[in-house]
Design a protein around this nucleic acid. Structure first.
Length: 676
DNA sequence: CTTAGGG
DNA sequence: CCCTAAG
């Protein structure tokens, strides 16, 4: 009999083999244009895209794959009968990349350590693509779901395995949902959109099917299409009759996973600070409505649990996205203001430290400082569990998380007047903890230990840019950096001897800015490693706090004087209003400084320069620089910079007088800031 | 994608 | 620093 059983891994989204082209490929196709308001059309495009991708990958496979080398396409859901008894580890993955508007997406399925013989209970990870209600596509990740396999007949000749994910709630890490307001039927369209295998001659030709499953994801039976509660979803699944014909990567999944991730963000064009793209994606991800639309049909076992999954929220997506960026998850945690009375919830979220000054000390002989700690601040944790979860599981989840943090090497931080006391060797007296007053200002917090540093350092950033651990001459580009510095520096002086009223031009090469270290330390304290988070199903909880929860604020990185110097010089030369140029001139190697940052910094610099020194905060900026800021600001605000880089401001003295001298240079090579 | 500004 | 409207 012909089995019509669909092999679906329980995720909505399409599964296709690794495709050769990156996100832009799909983008160019014009799919998922933001402008496309027609859900049906969008969905159709989605199908079409899937078809194209499949064809691409298939043709690519047929041209690249070596015959004998074929790996059973487990992920594809079907393998051949004759290999039934083979015990062969199978790892396959599917990756789909595309874009929706400005977002990019990728779908990936990774099956680990499956054997053809004992495929039951294999594990699978997958990323899912998703289109939100407004036609945006996004992805989430599911990890470690069980895979059930069974034999089914495909036709008269062959028997195959079909696999599906059987998800336990705990395993259901993330999921995706394609929301469309109007469902429409499918298969024909699917086929007509080029889904038919191209090499049908081959017995292993793909036999793809698309299914568009409409399912209501929420209880709102009023079918109010406009209600956010009423959504339909469709899933697209494709699979082949045989594993053959599919170019499936058999790989070390983790590694590949990472590599793939990199591919997406690594591509770096001249003006593409990866992070910008990264952030944009993130921004997109975090700003959409999320809902889980599990494929109930294929997940009988977990059906009941699925309902609970509907509650998954975007906060989680954020994580999933980032998780897709790094295998190791890292979460940043905010600390509640210690005075905030938000202490009550579960005792985990925040607390305030208080001491009991009433208990005096001042024992002349052996002075003791007595105090009590009512609460200790710990990083804010977010939890999200299915409504159907038991209290017991909730407890254990929390407990495990806490234990993880503690066991992970967390240590206590001491804060006096809100400032961390880092020197462990100082005595209380030396530190100023002795009198009643000082106790009032004493507080404690839990912070991740240095064990977590390595991971913590990478929080929120693509693998390639571990900001904190990667100052100037980072191992990544040590040589190049210095070269650039040297080559650029010199010429700039030669070509523009007159234009640059050199101040401490040279001071900006010190790769080790003290502030950097300071930053990394602070950053460290804000981060907790998640490593176990994954397994603990600890997920973000408060969706009330909108995006702030998701798109975590970048760690603050005060501009060093060196940077300010560079900025000032660049602006002097380029003027305001050309922040992108400024960026590339003076901060090209400072990944974490975007032109917006520079613009903002200039804004604050101007402000700083105008206020009295007493009102200024942070690392003091030399007055000389501030004067130049004012001068440049005055100059450029009058000379509407813009235009070509032709003009260069030349400031002679500290006077704020605007000495305008249109420079000769169109291109002034100035020295970029290479560190930080 | 960049700018310009407000928050 | 973030967010966004505009261009």
């Amino acid at each position: 009999m012909v089995s019509k059983k669909r092999i679906d891994y329980g995720f909505n989204g399409f599964r296709v083999p690794v495709i050769p082209k990156g996100p832009r490929s799909a983008r160019r196709r014009g799919v998922f244009k933001k402008a496309n308001q027609d859900d049906e059309a969008c969905a159709f495009e989605l199908l079409a895209l899937a078809g194209m991708l499949l064809q691409e990958s298939e043709s690519s496979a047929s041209s690249n794959a070596s015959e004998g080398n074929h790996q059973p396409a487990f992920g594809q859901g079907v393998i051949e009968q004759e290999k039934h008894d083979e015990v062969k580890p199978i790892i396959t993955d599917y990756i789909l990349r595309g874009s929706c508007g400005e977002s990019q997406f990728r779908t990936e399925v990774a099956m680990k350590n499956c054997t053809q013989k004992s495929v039951l209970d294999a594990n699978a990870d997958c990323l899912q693509g998703c289109i939100s209600a407004n036609n945006n596509f996004d992805c989430r990740r599911k990890a470690g779901a069980d895979v059930k396999s069974e034999i089914c007949e495909w036709d008269n000749k062959f028997q195959h395995y079909s696999n599906r994910l059987v998800e336990a709630p705990e395993n259901f890490r993330e999921s995706c949902d394609v929301n469309v307001n109007n469902g429409f039927r499918q298969e024909k369209e699917a086929n007509s959109s080029g889904f038919q295998g191209s090499n049908s001659a081959d017995k292993s030709s793909m036999k793809n099917q698309l299914e568009l499953n409409m399912s209501r994801t929420l209880i709102d039976s009023n079918s109010n299409a406009k209600s956010p509660l009423y959504r339909k979803s469709f899933s697209i699944a494709s699979y082949s009759k045989h594993g053959n014909g599919n170019k499936l990567g058999v790989r070390d999944d983790d590694e590949k996973f990472l590599r793939c991730s990199k591919v997406c963000t690594k591509s770096k064009t001249f003006r593409s600070p990866q992070r910008i793209a990264h952030r944009r994606i993130r921004k997109h991800l975090f700003s959409r409505h999320w809902k889980v639309a599990p494929n109930l049909k294929d997940c009988e076992l977990s059906r009941s649990d699925m309902g609970a999954q509907l509650l998954y929220r975007k906060r989680k997506i954020c994580q999933s996205f980032e998780r897709s960026e790094h295998k190791t998850r890292v979460k940043r945690r905010k600390f509640f203001d210690r005075v905030s009375g938000v202490t009550s919830d579960g005792g985990l979220s925040s607390e305030s430290v208080s001491n009991s000054p009433e208990k005096g000390m001042d024992n002349p002989k052996d002075p003791h400082v007595k105090f009590s700690i009512k609460t200790i601040r710990i990083p804010e944790l977010y939890f999200e569990v299915p409504e159907t979860a038991t209290i017991g599981s909730l407890k254990s989840t929390i407990m495990e998380t806490v234990m993880t943090i503690l066991g992970g090497g967390a240590h206590v931080g001491v804060l006096l007047q809100g400032k961390k006391v880092r020197d462990d060797n100082r005595t209380l007296v030396q530190t100023g903890i002795s009198c009643k007053e000082s106790l009032d200002n004493l507080s404690f917090e839990l912070e991740p230990s240095s064990l977590l540093d390595s991971a913590a350092a990478c929080v929120g950033d693509p693998p390639s840019q571990c900001e904190t651990s990667q100052p100037a001459g980072s191992p990544e580009t040590p040589v190049i950096d210095s070269e650039i510095t040297d080559t650029l520096h010199e010429p700039s002086l030669l070509t523009n001897p007159g234009n640059l009223v050199e101040s401490n031009h040279d001071s900006m090469t010190s790769p080790t800015d003290p502030t950097v270290d300071k930053e990394s330390l602070d950053c460290r304290a804000l981060v907790v490693v998640p490593a176990s988070t994954d397994a603990l199903a600890v997920v973000p909880f408060s969706q009330k706090s909108k995006r702030s929860e998701c798109a975590q604020r970048r760690t603050r990185r005060p501009f060093s004087v060196t940077e300010v110097e560079a900025l000032v010089r660049a602006v002097e030369e380029l003027g305001t209003g050309r922040w992108r140029d400024v960026k590339f001139r003076a901060f090209e190697n400072a990944e974490h400084r975007t032109y917006v940052d520079l613009k903002d910094k200039w804004k604050t610099l101007v402000h700083t320069a105008k206020i009295s020194p007493q009102q200024r905060r942070g690392e003091p900026v030399p007055q000389e620089l501030l004067d130049r800021v004012l001068a440049a600001h005055a100059y450029w605000s009058q000379h509407q910079a813009k235009q070509h880089g032709g003009k260069t401001l030349k400031i002679t003295e500290t006077s704020s007088a605007e000495t305008e001298k249109p420079s000769i240079e169109a291109v002034v090579q100035s020295q970029p800031v290479n560190h930080l």
